[in-house]
Amino acid sequence: MPRTRKITTPLLAVAAVAAIALAGCAAQPAGADGADTGDAEARETVTIAIVEGGVPIWDRVEELAAEEGIDLEYTTFTDWVLPNTSVQNDEIDLNVFQHAAFLSQFNVANDGDIVPLGSVRLSLDGLFSSRYDSLDALPDGASVSIPQDAANLGRALRLIESEGLIELGDDAGLFPTPDDIARNPKNLQFTLVAGEQLPFTYPDVDLVAGGTFGLSNADVPVDEALATTDPDAAFNLPYVLVVAAREGRADDPTLQRVAELFQDASLAAYIEEKSQGTNIQAIVPLEELREVLAELEDAARAEG
Results as ranks from 00 to 15, higher is better:
Gln276Phe: 05
Gln263Phe: 07
Val51His: 09
Thr76Gly: 08
Asp180Arg: 09
Gly154Phe: 06
Ala299Phe: 13
Val243Thr: 03
Val108Gly: 10
Gln148Ile: 12
Pro147Thr: 03
Asp33Thr: 08
Leu174Gly: 04
Gln88Ile: 06
Gln281His: 05
Thr8Ile: 09
Phe106Ser: 02
Asp298Cys: 05
Pro2Leu: 02
Ala109Leu: 14
Val242Pro: 01
Val61Gly: 06
Arg290His: 06
Ala250Leu: 01
Ala265Pro: 04
Ser162Tyr: 03
Val17Pro: 05
Asn187Cys: 00
Gly34Lys: 01
Leu103Tyr: 07
Phe213Lys: 12
Arg43His: 15
Ile48Cys: 13
Ile181Thr: 02
Ser104Ile: 01
Ala13Trp: 09
Arg249Phe: 09
Phe235Trp: 15
Val51Lys: 06
Pro199Met: 03
Leu192Cys: 06
Ala49Ser: 10
Gly112Ile: 01
Glu167Pro: 04
Gln105His: 14
Pro231Asn: 04
Arg158Phe: 13
Ala225Ile: 00
Val222Ile: 12
Glu287Asp: 12
Lys274Gly: 07
Leu293Trp: 13
Pro231Phe: 10
Ala19Glu: 07
Asn84Gly: 07
Val96Glu: 00
Asp170Ile: 01
Ala244Pro: 00
Phe235Asn: 14
Glu73Tyr: 09
Phe262Tyr: 14
Ala16Lys: 11
Ile280Gln: 06
Val284Thr: 14
Ile50Arg: 15
Leu289Cys: 05
Asp204Asn: 13
Ser119Lys: 03
Glu67Asn: 15
Val243Cys: 03
Ala218Phe: 11
Arg249Ile: 01
Val284Glu: 06
